[in-house]
Amino acid sequence: MPILFGYFAHLQMSTVAISHLSKSFSSGLFRKSNIQALSDVSITVSKGEIFGLLGPNGAGKTTLVKILLSVVHPTSGTATILGQPMGSTGIRERIGYLPENHRYPSFLTAHQTLLHFGRLQGLSKHFLSSKASELLRVVGLEEWSRVKIKKFSKGMLQRLGLAQALLNDPEVLFLDEPTDGVDPVGRKEIRDILKGLRSAGKTVFLNSHLLSEVEEISDRVAILNKGEVLSVGTIRDITSHALEYEIRLGIAPSEPVLQKIGALSRSLETNQLTLTLALHAKEDLNKILQILLQEGMSIESVMPRKSRLEDFFINLIRTRENP
């Protein structure tokens, strides 16, 4: 019972708490075939965190966000945002959302677009007038504020979409592929905006297939494939290899030294002054370091071995698909 209580208390403290969420779509003639878009997804996102949701196309990332925003109804499971059940009107006043491939009325200017969607958000005209100008400046569209958005490029529309999502000063921001079509400079600007939001205590839920981008700004990530969560954690946690280390030496080790180290390792690779080791047990690391010191080698650094998020992601997906 206390365990259950603790679990629910944790869910309540989380800004976004997703519990056993599943979604299946019926399709085909007479809706005979069933597509499982999400399977028993449970994720929590804390306040002030940038949370990255990663996955290949069709993994269910967008479906998950749409469920949280009540655009799609879940088949089973629950979720809360800011302690309230997802989908409540009150919650939608406190969140911002940038959908993937969003389409704004093309006959409006950038400024008018923000005014319109701000009004739908329930914001006053007086407040919106200054807020829209401020946000257009933040996303770099100040000079385009009076131009009809049908003349905007994809990248400009993404910037406008971000401004729209920020209109109500949201406590939680859901972004679905926010840098899609944005040039490298624009991407950096968007990343900086997101970092600024994190500093201000806002929570960002980021959907992206751009791994390097997510790796750079996310505090934690979840990897989704075929509707299932394969891994959740900090980038450091999920990219660290268990019992694998890189040791940088001051001088190149001799062959006998390498043989001694090799006897204690599952695998050993050498690259001039760097040894890459996979061990059987953590204690073996101390034994190896002692050998190196006894042999008069200078040790410059010992680091747990990490792979890039991209490598980890690809390996994880491949392993799941071809076990």
Binding site: K66, S70, V71, Y97, P99, H102, R103, F117, L120, Q121
Partner: peptide
């Protein structure tokens, strides 16, 4: 109800 538009409207605090 077009894709990309309906999400924007449904995410607003309107029933």
């Amino acid at each position: 109800l077009e894709k990309g538009t309906v999400e924007l409207y449904l995410s607003k605090p309107l029933s």
